[in-house]
Nucleic acid binder design. Structure first.
Lengths: 149, 149
DNA sequence: TTTTTATCAAGAACTATTCTAAATAATATT
DNA sequence: AATATTATTTAGAATAGTTCTTGATAAAAA
């Protein structure tokens, strides 16, 4: 189709002949309005409030399509269920072992995340993931409060 | 039991009242003599050569016990099957997306792996995992060779 | 010896995820 | 517009990795 015949559209292009369907849009919207890192099932529950007929399989399909299209990120921490995240900026994740929250943590400007390791000579690096586990500030505070009681 | 009555033993102490059984010893030996990062099923296959009667469930149990005891490491990369590793020194992992090999990579001396991220103020850090994905030197070489043919 | 506790094995159960197949819908082609 | 093509949705089945259950066995403690 010649370029001058293309219809204007506000819809996000997913590439590869993929369409921005109502289901994908709702899944996308839910993710973009989430600051936590919901699992597929959690996304499903939130999506159902807006579109009760959607199935879990479709949510999985949508999340996968959006992730492959590169407009959301799939986050895997250990062998827990995959979580999804609309924050496309490079960042790391903090996982609280007490309250199970996953939060984004920013990278320090100008410091490559790979700078702490001896990369194999000749390897082609595609991505570097940094995952921090521990106790989040809130849980540390809560625990200290208990101690002084 | 008073200390002077304790029997001497060369067996590794697993702590928590756990015993170093023949099964655990074989699993442990297999891991210590592996430089790759076998999955539970791969460990099972190797262990079977020495102890054909062992079950996969027992291998899982042993790996878990050894990991909890802290004498082997469980390595989780994305949502792939867990891998196990006898290298207890702090290190990161390189995962080749072409040949699926997982190799240890050393940390640079004096550079904390967490130094590239803005840790949440007040958080208690338990561990930091660095995972590098890409193409290993060998696969890069193989690919280049193909190009020039 | 008796009691307690830990371990093993086989298979069932579980969970997250992917696959299958049929129905539906959107787009492209005629 | 009508038809053909391709993409999507859905429900449920299937899969893979792992954990759980149970009864039998074995080691250690009393």
């Amino acid at each position: 189709m010649p370029a001058h015949k293309k219809k204007l559209s506000e819809k996000i292009d997913l590439g590869g002949g993929h369409r921005m369907t109502p289901q994908r849009q709702v899944v996308y919207d839910v993710l973009m309005s989430s600051r936590d890192h919901p699992t597929a099932t959690e996304v499903f529950i939130r999506v159902q409030e807006k579109m009760s007929s959607i199935s879990l399989a479709t949510v999985y399909n949508c999340l996968d399509t959006l992730a492959v299209a590169g407009i959301v990120k799939q986050v895997n921490l250990d062998r827990e269920p995959s979580r999804y995240c609309g924050n496309l900026a490079p960042h790391a994740h903090f996982h609280c072992e007490t309250c199970a929250t996953v939060m984004d943590i920013d990278l320090k400007d100008g410091v490559e995340p790979s700078s702490s390791v001896k990369l194999p000579r000749g390897a082609k690096i595609q991505k570097v993931e940094v995952e921090v586990r521990g106790k989040c500030p809130e849980c540390v505070r809560t625990e200290k409060k208990k101690d002084t009681l």
